[in-house]
Design a protein around this nucleic acid. Structure first.
Length: 227
DNA sequence: CCCTGATTCGC
DNA sequence: GCGAATCAGG
């Protein structure tokens, strides 16, 4: 899979919304959790509380000898002890452990819910599912307005509208519903049919042989998700 | 073990 | 640019 504009948009939205990389990867499909994280970082989205980086004080000694990653000019000192615990002794004066820092949600919304993490989830398209309390303030209702009876569009004055339909006129649609000039054929029907002779020819066609069916239309969004 | 994100590095 | 491998904390 490639990072199309849409997939990046979904990734960005979900990442910023707090979804985990695994969830994002599952949602997108075709990519691994690592791919999502890698992409997120490349996009510059990286600031997020991570379990591993939570207590990150200025510790120089980090990332010890990784396998086959030792730079040439470095002295080799393979310490068998893999886990070197830091001396926790002196570390006491911590005015602010990490409370003020995580800029995950820098939104100025007065959050009464303490620091409970916001629960979010995403629909198939990556849209944000909102909880009951997350709704935006409803847009103010439009000022009351006098309702004026709609005048029929002159362009369809002579056309057969929905209300003009009866079982003697052809109900073949002309144009598309919703369009200004949408109307119906209106010609005298082919007796016994809902359409005129011409449109009966369009409506009733011989069944094609089994082998000559046209291929099914492509499934939307590239078909069923592959997990 | 599972989960998480961060980082590195060969491609 | 991409992502598997790896690291490291919970």
């Amino acid at each position: 899979m490639s990072w199309t504009e849409e997939r990046i948009a979904t990734l960005t939205k979900m990442w910023e919304g707090g979804a985990t990389a695994s969830e994002i990867a599952t949602e997108l499909g075709g990519v691994s959790r690592n791919a999502v994280i890698g992409k997120a970082h490349r996009l510059g989205l990286k600031a997020r509380p991570s379990p591993v980086k939570a207590n990150d004080k200025k510790k120089a000694a980090k990332k010890k000898a990784a396998p086959a990653k030792a730079p040439p000019p470095k002295a080799k000192a393979p310490a068998p002890a893999k886990k070197a615990k830091e001396a926790p002794a002196t570390a006491k004066p911590e005015p602010k452990p990490a409370a003020a820092s995580p800029g995950t949600n820098s939104q100025p919304i007065p959050n009464r819910q303490e620091d409970l993490p916001k629960i979010v989830s995403y629909g198939p398209g990556g849209f944000l599912r909102q909880g009951p309390g997350d709704q935006q303030a409803p847009i103010p209702p439009a000022p009351p307005r006098r309702l004026v009876p709609a005048k029929p569009d002159p362009s369809i004055a002579d056309k057969t509208s929905l209300l003009d339909l009866n079982d003697r006129v052809c109900r073949w649609p002309m144009g598309h519903p919703g369009e200004p000039d949408f109307h119906f054929c209106g010609v005298k029907v082919n007796p016994g049919f809902p359409y005129c002779v011409e449109h009966c020819g369009r409506a009733y066609q011989a069944q094609l042989p089994r082998g000559a069916r046209r291929p099914p239309p492509p499934l939307p969004f590239g078909g069923p998700r592959v997990r």
